[in-house]
Each structure stands twice: as C-alpha cells, then as structure tokens.
Design a protein around this nucleic acid. Sequence first.
RNA 1: GCCGAAGUAGCCAAGAUGGUCACGGCACUGGUCUGAAAAACCUGGGAUAUUGGUUCGAGUCCAAUCUUCGGCA
Length: 310
Amino acid sequence: MTQPNVSLTENRILIISGPTATGKTDLAISLAKKFNGVLISADSRQIYQGLDVGTGKDHPKGFKINLIDLITPDQDFSVVQYQKLAFQKIIEIHSQNKLPIIVGGTGLYIDSIVNPDKSTYFIRPNKFLRFFFNKLSTSTLQRIYRLLDKKSFDSLNNSEQHNPHRLIRKIEIKLSGKDVINHIQINKNNFNILHLSLTAPTSCLYPRIDTRVQKRLDIGLLDEIKNLLKKYSWSDPGLNTLAYKEFRDYFNHQKSLKDCVDVWRFDEHSYARRQLTWFKKQTNLHFIDITKPKYLLLALDLVKKWYNLS
RNA sequence: GCCGAAGUAGCCAAGAUGGUCACGGCACUGGUCUGAAAAACCUGGGAUAUUGGUUCGAGUCCAAUCUUCGGCA
C-alpha cells in the first residue's frame, strides 16, 4: 500500500460510523463544512450504480461524496478493493490540505481503514473454487476443511463452523498455499484517527427505520427495482441488498406487497442490531447517543478537542 | 336472542385414538466473522383463555364463564 506523504500533523482522518438511520451523513456534512472536510463513503451498497432509493442516496445536492456509484449491480466488490480506493482518496484529500471524513455503516470497510494490516487480505478470491463450493452443503465444506487443516477447523467457533462463506474462504486461503503468518505488515499509526460512532437503543432506531422504509416506498422504490430488473437479475450481487432482495417474491407473485415490506422492515431491524453488535466491540471510538439532547454539540466538541481548539 | 365453529408466546402455527408441562416459523435478545459484510452464520427466553369436573394422568374429554368468527333471527 502506498504510504501517505504528509506531515504528521496533517494526517488526520475523521470517521463517523453507526447503525442505519442514525443520521451519520447529516453529521458528517455539517462537520465537513466546519473543518474543511471531504466525505468518503464507507457503505458497501452505495457503491452500486442504480441502487439509489433503496440505499438512501438522497444526499444533499452539491455535496460530493466519494466512493459511491463505483460499479454496476452485476459486478463483485469487496473490502480489499474498498481499502485500496479509500486510501487513495485519503491521500489525495490530505494532499489538498483537507480533512477526509469517512462516513458509513459498513463496519468491515471502516475496520480496513482503522486496522489495515490484515494478514490474509493479499490472498485473492478464487472464483472457480467459489463457484463449485457454493453448491456444496455446509457439512461437506466442513469435511473438506477438516481434512485440509484439522487443527484450524477445530479451533473455529460454532458460528464459523456453520458459515459456508467463511468455510469457503478458509479453504481458499489454505489451498492458495501461501503462508499467512509471514505477510503481516506493520502499518499502523500512520494516521491520526478520530472515530465517532453514533448509537441509539433499538427502541429508538426501529421506529426511525420504519418511517424511512415507508418514505422510500413513497418516493418510488418499486419503480427503481422494476427498472433494475430490465437490466439485471436477482442473482446479481448488487440486488442481494436490503430493500431489494425482499421484493423478489413480490415481483414473482409469490408474496403480497405488504408481506414483503414487513420482511424488509425486520431485515433492517436485524441489520441495525448486527451493526450495534459490531461497533460495540470496536476499540478507540467515541460513542455518541443520538437520543441525548446535545449530541451534536458533543460531537463538535470532540472534534475541536482533537484539533486542540477547545 | 338462538344455532354452529374456534380459543396454544406479540403474530402465524403443529399436537392421531388423553401419557416425556408442548414441533416449527416470524418478531424480539445476545453473540460470531482477516478479500461476499446491507453478506453469511451461532445463541437465548417466553405459551396451552378462565374456573371447576372426570381420570393414576388433560392442550387433548365434560360443564360453566368470557372472548372471537360465521349463520339464523
């Protein structure tokens, strides 16, 4: 990875994370205006062109957000590509003496910025292997991985042992024949990161999600899906996205619209829950509870303090 | 008002002839995950409408009450 060529005082990165429907973008924009910031999205779905209503690209006009609309819905994307593009942008923004503000809810993508040195990220996905292994049952995958590396298999927790995606990835790494241990690079602390993470109890998030769901229906989500289906199919990676995948049964006349909307709402709820779980486990971040009356001021103060302005 | 049907967790729902205090799904809870992450997984708690009866034993049979639905008036 290219190292940033900026002085130590100028290598700041502001991160604004948090579960869906907490108002991350609004906060990011208002901080960008105050601190000469440029936004970089950390959103694994807004990278897709054409997924606008469902992924909430209703950003204020005239405010550029980087790393959205990168690819079409039939293309693959992953965290390593994100990491590469994000660091390129960060360096570019630093070179203009501006503050990169990473904003988004995809915890893994943010993690690739905060903890960039992942020992397996250099092992590329094996499309051929994935194509065939995706047809195998979980128990077959377990058997294969146990055969290849019994010790590692036994050390996996219950959740991982039943997770076909993870098993396939482990097998992929194993079969690559590369030695993972020797590829750890020390690359930390090149940046001065302030990570603010918006949070709220689910009892607050669920109603916010529900009204937003309704709003997205009102402003034409179904038309958007109808248009996408002219060009893309349900098996394309981009359509495996909340707000889209739930309507497959509706468009195939298997389910009523109301049932699909309910499933979508509940999927959004559990997505928010997973995000909360993820961010809870992260270190070196400041949680900001958006149900507290002056949370915006709190965020502002933290940034000022970071700049020694307070 | 009469006749019929039904009442199992927040919702849907299984339970042959009574016999491990009850299958699931959704919701909800907590967690996992180093190139799919808005992905893919793991985990947990909660129920037989009420009261009485028959029986060694009742979600399952009987009665009353309450509630809901349908029909007749």
